[in-house]
């Protein structure tokens, strides 16, 4: 990452609402062209962090540089270069999907035709003339994302863009986001979906209670966790005693339906299982960000 220019630099920002510390000393850097994810449960401080970077909120202390400039107080020079999707979708009243896009586009000097084309991108072409309040939750979400992208910004901030989307729409959106990144844009986004972050992000910051607990590429986080891989077999494929005796197995236990083997060296374990022909119902689950979260916070991930 060194040598590249930074799109976002955050240094030790803090923000309190009365007694409550929403953001408690957060620092990170997002390189230009990077896909950066912020993960964390409800109330972790993700939205507050994003809004401080966008220039919607003033931090109590700390420093933010967005494309080399300070976003606070309202920095009009910066605004055309950033695109923001707020967590709660914001639309003009009684306007259709197309009109919403054209109106937001006009705020940035985008032509109505270009604005309307964005509908295609998020798969809402057939809802162009539907009023915003008649769209489903997921459709509103997609429209809101299109409104954030309408002026082709360099840095895109998306606050839980995939919340409320069905799996198909979610995957379509992933493609859209990847395409944006391929055009050299920077994306900073928050999500509750750990699996999604693992797939999309170059780096993720795991946040809880206003602090960043870990910040790395997802693969590095998972590897660094040194968590065992779980191999699951149909019950009866192998006895617990036999399984425990295999080379590399740390632990084996059984319930009514399956036998689960924990190992940090899955390769020899799997070949031993194959030798014995004990592969019925085989499932291998490597450690995920969820395990990372569990390890960092000592609790199950509660999205």
């Amino acid at each position: 990452m060194t040598g590249e220019r930074s799109a976002v630099v955050v240094r030790d920002i803090r923000k309190s609402y009365g007694e409550l510390t929403a953001v408690d000393g957060v620092s990170f850097t997002v390189a230009e062209g990077e896909f950066f994810g912020i993960l964390g449960p409800n109330g972790a401080g993700k939205t507050t962090t994003l809004e401080i970077i966008e220039g919607l909120r003033e931090p109590d202390s700390g420093e933010v540089r967005l494309l080399g400039e300070s976003p606070w107080p309202r920095n009009v020079k910066l605004l055309p270069r950033i695109g923001v999707q707020l967590q709660a979708s914001s639309f003009f009243e009684k306007l259709t999907a197309k009109e919403q896009l054209q109106t937001f586009g006009a705020l940035y000097g985008v032509s109505p035709g270009t604005a309307a084309d964005m509908l295609e991108l998020v798969g809402l072409a057939d809802k162009a003339n539907e009023q915003e309040n008649k769209l489903s939750g997921g459709q509103r979400q997609r429209l809101s994302i299109a409104c954030a992208l309408v002026h082709d910004p360099d840095v895109v901030f998306l606050d839980e863009p995939t919340a409320a989307l069905d799996p198909q729409a979610r995957r379509n959106l992933w493609d859209v986001l990847r395409a944006i990144q391929e055009r050299g844009k920077t994306i900073v986004y928050t999500t509750h979906y750990l699996d999604e972050a693992e797939i999309l992000c170059d780096r993720v910051a795991i946040m809880d209670e206003g602090r960043i607990l870990a910040l790395d590429p997802p693969a590095v986080l998972v590897r660094g966790l040194d968590a065992p891989t779980h191999v699951t077999l149909q019950k009866g494929a192998l006895s617990v005693v036999d399984a425990s005796a295999l080379d590399g197995v740390e632990e084996a236990h059984e319930n009514e339906v399956s036998l689960t083997i924990s190992t940090r060296r899955p390769a020899p374990v799997l070949s031993a299982l194959a030798e014995r022909g004990a592969l019925d119902g085989l499932q291998v689950r490597a450690a995920t960000l969820e395990d990372v979260f569990l390890d960092l916070t000592g609790r199950e991930y509660r999205a």
Partner: peptide
């Protein structure tokens, strides 16, 4: 009021107008 509640004001604040 409705623009403030529906966050349209915040969204406009993020646009160069």
């Amino acid at each position: 009021v409705s623009w403030r509640r529906k966050q349209v004001l915040r969204r406009i604040r993020l646009a160069p107008v």
